[in-house]
Design a protein around this nucleic acid. Structure first.
Lengths: 196, 196
DNA sequence: GTCTATACCACGATAGAC
DNA sequence: GTCTATCGTGGTATAGAC
């Protein structure tokens, strides 16, 4: 019989977060119990409370970490000259980033309503910050005369929804690589905001 | 004190469904209890079981009823000549239908994973039937030489996601009417599949 | 058809031993 | 840091009176 006690704080913490991420993504926050997460990690339910004050904080921490990563990655991305090139950069960045971490993306869209109001406000502000980057590109392109977009706000919503939708059907190992998918989506996006 | 007993089967049934629809949309299926639904309706929890065998059947019945309505409405819609006109018809139908019943739409996308496998298969097949209507339009337009769509399957996913996204931001009484929204989206859709 | 009452179980979270 | 044990609450669903 294996020993059942010991000190593992440095590895158990990340394992709790990983298990929660996977289970929340699969079954939904409300449907997943702390006992389920503990079982996945291989500890008793009570031990989880060494790593999170409660279940809500665990969800918030996952979403918060994900949004931080998204914003950092976007701000580190190259910023080419010209709205068309910047739009292409956004499209390819968004598709690649989303397909690289489908579970975090899924939770970020599905579990917003399970955040307490204060936590929700934080995540929502981050999401708006990211989306406003796209709107700014569309405004610039409109000013440059490169795009024809009657309503940049609506267009940004429409494009974000289209791009994020990739995650609902894409499966790694399918007939298309991520690059091929990005090529096809970029073709549609480019034309959708073009003049004419 | 008002009487607390009596016979109301013809009105309580719909009220149970209405309350469940609203609460599931707001808090999520897993987070809503039968007691909550009963409170909303004004009966005791046990009384709900006169109208549904269990909570799962209640969710399935809502989704099933919604998908039936969607497919019937689409099949009753006019079917103009030419792929461009049919695509425009689809865009306007989809936006209007979705904005007319935001709660049912929301549940249909969010609660699929809370359906038991058998129930899920039924709803999924209906959803595929609806989405294949769009793909067929894109294929026809490609054959007619009216569209340039390298991958009709992907394009249909992209467009459905874009159009369905309207529900995440549209609020009745905002600065744009449903018709104006549909005009803007149709402009983007039309261009996104155009040649060039 | 709805009520009250309850069976039975699982939940989140905590206490104290090791 | 993890365990066992448990508290208090609330979950779905059912039984039987009215």
């Amino acid at each position: 019989m294996a020993r059942t006690q010991g000190s593992h704080s440095d590895i158990t913490g990340p394992r709790v977060r990983d298990a929660a991420l996977r289970l929340f993504a699969q079954y939904g926050y409300a449907a997943v119990s702390m006992r389920q997460i503990a079982r996945e990690v291989g500890v008793q339910a009570g031990a989880l409370y060494n790593y999170t004050p409660d279940k809500q904080a665990l969800l918030f921490s996952l979403l918060r970490g994900h949004m931080d990563e998204l914003l950092e990655a976007w701000e580190a991305a190259p910023r080419p000259e010209g709205a068309v090139a910047r739009l292409e950069g956004f499209v390819r960045f968004h598709i690649r980033f989303n397909l690289d971490r489908p579970e975090a993306i899924f939770i970020s869209y599905m579990e917003l309503r399970n955040l307490e109001p204060g936590n929700f406000a934080v995540i929502e502000a981050q999401r708006k910050r990211y989306e406003s980057a796209l709107e700014e590109i569309l405004r610039d392109g409109q000013a440059e005369g490169a795009f024809s977009v009657p309503d940049t706000r609506l267009a940004s919503y429409a494009l974000i929804a289209m791009l994020t939708g990739v995650n609902t059907w894409y499966r790694a190992g399918g007939r298309l690589s991520i690059e091929e998918v990005a090529d096809i989506y970029w073709d549609m996006v480019r034309k959708s905001v073009a003049i004419g």
